[in-house]
Every structure is written in C-alpha cells, then in structure tokens.
Simulated scan of single mutants.
Amino acid sequence: MLRILLFLGTNIAVLILLSIVCRLFGIDAWAAQRGVGMGGLLVYAAVFGMGGAFISLAISKWMAKMSTGAKVIKEPANENERWLLDTVRRHAEKAGIGMPEVAIYDGPEMNAFATGMSRNNALVAVSSGLLQQMDREQVSAVLGHEIGHVANGDMVTLTLIQGVLNTLVIVAARIVGRLVDSWLNGGRERDGGGMGYFVVVLVLQIVFGLFASMIAMAFSRWREFRADAAGANLAGRGAMISALQRLSANHGESTLPQTIQAFGISGHLATGLKRLFMSHPPLEERIAALQSAR
C-alpha cells in the first residue's frame, strides 16, 4: 500500500507543481489574455506533460546508478562477473540490440531492472541477492527478461504513455476549470481565471491523475508478460518459469527506489481496487501464462 501511495503521490505532485508554477508565473493568465485556443493549449500541455517524462527517461541510467549504488562491470573482477557479461552479451545479440551496460547493486531481495534511453543505450542491473539465491539457469532467464524489456522498447513506450496521459490531464483539467469558473462568474470569463478555476484545476488534476495512473499501470502489467515471453525465448521456458517460482521466496519491501520499481522484475501485490495500481501482475499469473503458451 505504501508503494502505491508513493507512486500516486509522485505523479500527482508533479501535476500540482505544474499548476502552481503556471499560476505563480502567470502562464495561465498569459494564455487566457491572448485567447490561446485548443491548439495552443495542447502545445502548452505537451511541453509540460511530455517534457518532464522524457527528461526523466534521458537521465534514467544516471539516476538508477546513483539511487541504487549500482556498480557497472567494466572489466570483470571474477568468473561470476565474466559469466554475467557473457550471458547479457549473448542475449543482446540474439535479441538484436546493442550491448547494455551491466551492473550489480547491493540488495537482499532477488531483483533486477533495465532502463535507458534506447535499445542501444541501456542498463541492465541485478541485485546481489539475486546472484546469491538463484542458480545460473534462473539468473540467465531473469537477464533474458530484462533484455526483453530493452528489445521491446518498454522504457520509451511507458514514458511516452505517461507523457501523453499527463498532457491529457493538464488539458482536461483546464478546460473543465474554465467552464466551472465561468459558471461561478455568471457566465463571464475572466482573464487568467479566478480562484474557482485554480481550485478546480488542482482537484481535477488529482482525480484525472488517478485514472491516468491506472492506464499506465495496466500497460506496465501487460509488458511484464511480454518480457517473460522474451526471457523464455532467450533462456528457455523452463528456466523462466523456474526463475519466477524462485522469486516467490522474496519477502518484505523492495529496496529499489520508487522511481525505478516499475522496471524491476517483480513488484508489490495488492487486492481489490488497489490491483489497478500494480505495476506487475501476480507471479502465479505470469507463471500460468508461460505454462499455457504454445
């Protein structure tokens, strides 16, 4: 539940911050005074909605390394690191992508993640706990899963979806805010909108942001099934199923920072409506999908 609240809070805080910045610097008033139409509103919303998302993607590798303390393997220090590099290279060549950076970060749970700006400029990192608690066949499957994310362009696609959703939230909140403010003012529009407009925009960005998060997480869950299929193709279906079964032994909260938890190989579990905000499907559903695949 805590991770769900943190995820929602981060997205909503960004949207609220944008509203406050626009208000303080008079961007909304400037647009209203110049009669900016739907086209102008879309451009304005896209700059804020898409810009932040792609800036985050551009610095994702740097942020991931800094926040997890991941150490990139440049020259293997031992046989295990050499095997790790060779396995990633083999999977990357089979998947038709450039060789990613490979890193290890300290973490007691079994986990791994991939991030990066493009298919040929990615980072694949594994936790020390995963290397200690899985055999090489299982680790190979996990690496195949992460290479599948990179090959499928999941990081870019998820960023694009989040950016589009942020843009739509900004546009929808301002359109409805104008209508409500006009109604409160007896049908007359005010330059820059009044307090009613500002309050309505803030509230609607929270409400619409919740629905946007549901859509983004639905895609995130779907991409996990695709990455599992990629891992099965690269390392073998039995190895991928075995790795997912082994992941069920994870206990407690993930040590991955909130900003990259959606890119880990496993995520939090939830029930009821909270399932709509899960970034990963339950492990049993992923295992069943692989077992039923032809």
Rank of each mutant, 00 (worst) to 15 (best):
S60L: 04
R226I: 09
D191V: 10
F7T: 01
N78P: 02
K274E: 13
N78H: 09
N185G: 00
I241L: 06
F225P: 01
I16F: 09
L204E: 04
T167F: 15
T68H: 05
L8M: 12
D135T: 15
T259W: 04
G186E: 10
V47C: 15
I265G: 03
W62A: 14
H145V: 12
A218F: 06
D135N: 15
D135V: 15
R223C: 13
A45Q: 04
M63N: 10
A92S: 09
Y105W: 14
G196K: 01
W30Q: 13
R223D: 10
G192T: 05
E75I: 13
V21G: 12
E146N: 07
T255N: 12
M214F: 14
V139Y: 08
M110Y: 02
G252W: 00
G194Y: 04
G35D: 12
A235D: 03
K65C: 06
G26Q: 03
M38W: 06
Q245D: 15
A262Y: 00
A262S: 05
V169C: 04
R3D: 01
G153P: 09
L17W: 07
T255H: 12
G267N: 05
F198R: 01
R82M: 13
V180H: 01
S56Y: 10
G153H: 06
E146C: 06
L234D: 01
M50F: 13
L273R: 07
W83S: 02
A112V: 14
M214V: 14
I55M: 15
F208P: 00
W30K: 08
R178N: 14
A232I: 00
A249M: 07
A13N: 05
G196L: 00
E79Y: 06
A230F: 06
